[in-house]
Simulated assay, not measured.
Amino acid sequence: MSEPAPTPTAADRRRWIRYLVNERAEASVYRHLAARREGEERDILLALAEAEGRHEAHWLELLGGEPARLPKADLETRVLGWMARRFGSIFVLALAQNAEGRSPYDSDAAATPAMRADEKIHHEVVRGLAARGRRRLSGTFRAAVFGANDGLVSNLALVMGIGATGAAPQFVLFSGIAGLLAGALSMGAGEFVSVRSQRELLAATEPNGYADHVLPDLDLDANELALVYRTRGMAIDDAMDRARLTVEAARAADRSVPFTVPREAAGEHDVVGGAWAAAGSSFLFFASGAIIPVLPWIFGLSGVAAIALALALVGVALLATGAMVGLLSGGPPLRRALRQLAIGFGAAAVTYVLGLVFGVSMG
């Protein structure tokens, strides 16, 4: 006969109850996310909620039924639920990915091996869902974070350096506004040229009908049209078959067979967005970051008070952008936020010291 299971202690029951409420809260998060999606993603999220329900049933069985009193779920899980109800965004999936990666079941003998395996698989499932959102968001998000962070750091360094020389507040303000405009215009112009050049490059490589009118005159046995198809990625045999079919169709004036390679066969990659839209967004992203260090001088502050407030405002903004990068990349938000803060303040410290040196030498 197998030995009876040991009687759970009060600490065991408290831990199991905490697991129970967290499983219910996580299932609710997935259901709220599913309500904002459709198709395959909705089915996947509902399946995750169902799996959390199985885990919930396990803890209810160990507890001998529904406890009389239940505590609140962990703070992180409650925040996830709040965000899922109101936003249903990629940030929720990124946070859920981090949460699934920190399952307590690995070190708890009361959890079954199947539950421990489930949690690890859930982490990969949520990572896959989050990856879809990251791919959809990557271009815009990269431009937003890069532009805003560049504006924050470059203009903070500028006004810190100018302010440290002892220059008049009006001169610091003028320098900050000039730095904002110069940087934003430079970012916008660079993005415009980059996107326009990429579009022109792709247009130059796109298949066209330049040689269509001579196709009936090609020799079927020495068919150089096959070389064209091979340069566009087709295998030798496929290229020969396609070339023969194309020449025969051209001789028969059969326009149902396209003479040029379809876009997907040629491997074309379209550019998302236009050059003007990219330039405008880059200008605005940079300006939105660059205006923050200048705000104290805009509102009439000067000296140490203006510098301290500028540091505080930019510090909050750097922490926020760093945390967002961490969330979307699946990394620890706090570490990314502190890294962003250290980089920004490090650049500002260098220019501030240079400003002090120049201020003393000119004094």
Rank of each mutant, 00 (worst) to 15 (best):
S302I: 04
P262A: 07
Y105K: 14
P4W: 03
R135S: 13
R336N: 15
L218S: 02
G280V: 12
R15D: 03
D212I: 02
D212S: 06
A130Q: 07
R116H: 07
G289A: 03
R14L: 07
D43W: 05
G346K: 02
E206W: 09
D74L: 10
Y352R: 10
G166Q: 00
R230F: 03
G331V: 04
E66Y: 07
V125Q: 12
G233H: 00
T7E: 15
S288C: 11
L173I: 02
H269T: 13
L319A: 14
P8M: 02
D238N: 01
E224P: 08
L202S: 12
G289H: 00
R244P: 04
I236G: 03
A250H: 01
V271I: 14
R135W: 14
M187L: 11
E191F: 07
T321P: 07
A266K: 01
D12F: 04
L180C: 08
F174D: 12
R134T: 11
G176W: 01
Y210M: 14
L311I: 08
L334D: 14
A144Y: 10
F192P: 03
D217S: 15
E124K: 15
Y19H: 14
G233Y: 00
G39A: 08
S361M: 15
E50H: 10
A250N: 00
D118Y: 07
R339I: 11
F286Q: 04
A222M: 09
P71T: 05
Y352H: 09
L220K: 02
E224D: 11
L215Y: 05
G163S: 04
A143V: 14
G331Y: 11
R14F: 05
A148L: 12
R199W: 07
T205M: 14
G330M: 13
A35S: 11
R69I: 07
F87R: 15
R116N: 10
R18Y: 07
G64N: 05
D118P: 02
R85A: 12
R263Q: 13
G344N: 08
A290Q: 09
D219K: 09
E52T: 06
E56L: 06
P216H: 04
M187E: 08
L284M: 12
S281V: 11
R142G: 15
E100R: 02
G315C: 04
A144N: 08
N155E: 10
L33P: 06
V172M: 04
A243W: 08
M160W: 08
F299G: 03
V159M: 02
F358K: 13
T321R: 12
V257R: 10
S282R: 09
L341Y: 09
E206V: 04
G64R: 05
A342Q: 02
G322A: 10
R116P: 06
E52A: 06
G188Y: 00
I177W: 03
G322L: 13
E66W: 08
R24T: 10
A109W: 13
A203I: 00
M234P: 08
P4G: 02
M240L: 15
A239P: 00
E26Q: 13
G188P: 01
A131E: 12
Q198A: 11
R85Q: 11
V353D: 07
R15C: 00
R251P: 02
G53Y: 01
L245N: 13
G267P: 00
R230L: 07
L309Y: 05
M115Y: 01
P6R: 12
I236L: 10
A167E: 02
R335C: 12
G300R: 08
